[in-house]
Design a protein around this nucleic acid. Structure first.
Lengths: 190, 190
DNA sequence: GGAAACGGTCAACGCTTGTAGAGTGATCTA
DNA sequence: TAGATCACTCTACAAGCGTTGACCGTTTCC
């Protein structure tokens, strides 16, 4: 139903992408429980059974849709003084790219109520970068300080993209960095 | 079914409290959608229909269970230098008191996926204290800085009580304050 | 050109959910 | 002590859900 006559493989890839996009939007808007497979299928202009066929079950669809996509290479190599800027860059990289945005929001929105989203958040989003930052910080409180940095950054993401807190949402990326970088420096480099 | 023979009014108050406690626990553990009325009733040792009778519908039950209970008097009167400490005090006041804890967690857990929890979070938890803090800060960025403070604090609460981030969860309240108060001071008093 | 393969649809099942209304037995009141 | 009241239960409904298996029509391949 996506378009007229194309090679099969291409056609399949397109409908699959359409489904995934619809899923991301709905998981981001409504959350896992309230985003029904029927609604995803309807938005993609497709039969619900096809969604099952491609992704096995609702959980598989969610796993494919809600992804974190930031690699932490820069963070691992950043010196102490550049950690805050890098952490904020990584955050914005996930949310400002329109291609990644819905998937990131889908993950963020569901990470407090959906087991597998929580797992991704804990294992992929927090643990690794937190460990890197802690290694760079060094000293007694390193793990805790790194954890508090991650927590603050996620809090800002929630305020900006989910709560849509007026001041935090309206602020430019530059303003956020101007204010938060020195603050987070005081956290990692006391 | 709560206990043997008591005056009716007292008996009723007790079962109602039992139901509310069960609801708080389940909304905190499982989230709004996955916490069923049947499960709440079962945990309270009561018929599901009774829950409906007392709270009208599931939404009413949630509204009664998930509450924020911090008054912001101290925050409104706090000078700039004491805002961070006061904000953290207010946070811990909600989560360390065993009587308030489940209700607070229920609210926090559902505030990304459940409309009415989001509304409470936005209107009662963030807007008012944020406005107070902004007023005390003054100047151009006041609203934004206040919003970022609120965001950071909520991020810490999420990391500590929902993600159960090892470092952040294991830290003592004193350690958290020792580290975060100077950091947040740099945010409100640059 | 015929058969296999494949993208996609259709109709339906079984289950869980929130919710409604009638009923029941203990407690209160007069 | 008789009747009204009230806390509470039982049974059931209607809707929505994830999921399934049989089916259809087009594209692919020999």
């Amino acid at each position: 139903m996506t378009s007229e006559s194309l090679p099969r493989e291409e056609r399949r890839r397109r409908t699959e992408a359409t489904i995934l996009e619809a899923a991301r939007e709905l998981f981001a808007e409504a959350g896992f429980e309230r985003a029904t497979i029927r609604a995803v299928a309807a938005r993609a202009g497709v039969d619900p059974a096809l969604v099952m066929q491609y992704y096995g079950n609702k959980e598989g669809l969610f796993a494919a849709a809600a992804r974190w996509h930031v690699d932490h290479k820069r963070l691992a190599e950043a010196p102490l003084s550049e950690i805050p800027q890098t952490a904020l860059d990584d955050l914005f990289a996930g949310f400002d790219d329109p291609q990644k945005r819905d998937g990131a929001i889908a993950l963020l929105r569901n990470c407090l109520t959906h087991e597998s989203a929580l797992k991704v958040m804990r294992d992929d989003v927090m643990r690794e970068p937190q460990a890197m930052i802690a290694r760079t910080i060094g000293g007694d409180d390193a793990e805790l300080r790194a954890g508090l940095l991650a927590a603050s950054v996620i809090g800002i993401a929630i305020a900006r993209y989910l709560f849509e807190n007026p001041a935090v949402q309206a602020a430019s990326r530059e303003d956020l960095e101007r204010i938060m970088v020195p603050v987070l420096k005081a956290l990692v480099d006391p």
